[in-house]
Design a protein around this nucleic acid. Structure first.
Lengths: 204, 204
DNA sequence: GTAAAATGTTAGTAAGCACTTACAAACATA
DNA sequence: TATGTTTGTAAGTGCTTACTAACATTTTAC
């Protein structure tokens, strides 16, 4: 067990992340969060001026999905299908790691500020744009047919994000690792055939 | 404005649906719900034994997505691509109509009972199975290649559900009607080419 | 070892919450 | 008109909540 040394502040942030994602912002009490952190409630308020400030700090501390932008360059030399499999795999892993954060964002959409929402949006957008750029390149090189690359990226991540939502957030049919692998390959299969240039393409 | 005559009970249920979806179960107070319904708070408790009972009644009253099962048979004679466009359109319309319900389900996942969750799951499953059956038929008739039809159905709805989630629940880039039409056509385009039988299919 | 900084303990406050009681008013039905 | 049903008003109960104050204790830094 390689437990890292956590500061009081970090312990509180982690407990808050966990409890907010499990019970919602209003459902998790400051008393509970303090107990879960192993500190007194008053200590929580000495580190964070209010419960709302705590939420803000949680959301900015555990911010979302930087990893994916690095995956795409690193796989761009692979064959198309393999590259997509790696992208999908990386995407699902990242979602898994950040699931508490994502749960909060999806549950407490009415609470958090315009600023945070915009940050989340721009991150999503960045992800789409990054994949879209890769797809655009593949179109220019003649591998892929013509289509709206931004929408394609959105469709691609949409398939996987929906699977994640259903299995993690709504506890609907969740697969084991080998089945997830199967799912990835099938999904990528649809997308590859859906986007690749074929001999018999009839453009209108 | 063709306002229907609503019973007190119905007025409360509607207001509760609206407020629960906007502010969450804990965020919406019984006082507010009563005010929004135009009744006294005590009247709310004469119709519903508790706030929790009210939530249960809201969720069972505005239950989810029956429409889609009727769409698929009605379009099964259309060409493949047109059929999928109609299915996608119907799906998005239904999601739109039920968006308050869906918002609650996604926000309050920690609150509602095992029973309700199972009901929701079986509805989702039914939708997937219905489309999967249609796809299976198309495979047997030779129009489509071989693939896991359940996963294909899940991927198809996943693309659109993700778009719905992002635009309605997270207020990320939402398109107007004509742009949505464009999105549907592009998404369906990917899926059609991803699933159709091609002359030059190289199965391993 | 000593001062300072961080934490714990205990008690408390003010507000908001779901929910109740008692009684009066409005309304429909006969 | 009389009667039962539904609603409103008003007041209040008991509980929980976020948050604070005062003081004791522990941990850290030099």
């Amino acid at each position: 067990m390689s437990e890292v040394q956590h500061s009081t502040r970090e312990k509180i942030l982690e407990a808050a992340l966990r409890l907010f994602s499990q019970k919602g912002y209003l459902g998790a009490t400051t008393k509970e969060i303090a107990a879960e952190s192993g500190v007194a409630e008053v200590t929580l308020f000495r580190h964070f001026s209010s419960k709302e400030a705590l939420l803000e700090d949680v959301l900015t501390s555990y911010t979302y999905l930087p990893a994916l932008k690095e995956i795409i360059p690193s796989v761009s030399k692979l064959p198309y299908e393999e590259a997509l499999v790696e992208i999908a795999r990386g995407f699902l892993i990242t979602l898994d790691l950040r699931q508490d954060f994502i749960k909060i964002i999806h549950s407490e959409r009415h609470l958090y500020s315009e600023k945070l929402l915009k940050g989340y949006h721009s991150t999503i957008n960045e992800i789409f744009v990054t994949l879209a750029a890769y797809l655009s390149d593949m179109q220019k090189s003649g591998t892929l047919r013509e289509f709206d690359s931004f929408l394609a990226a959105r469709a691609f991540f949409g398939m996987f994000f929906s699977y994640f939502t259903q299995s993690h957030l709504l506890m609907f049919k969740k697969y084991g690792p080998s089945e997830t692998d199967h799912l990835i390959k099938e999904y990528v299969g649809f997308f590859v055939r859906g986007t690749i240039r074929e001999g018999l393409t009839n453009n209108d």
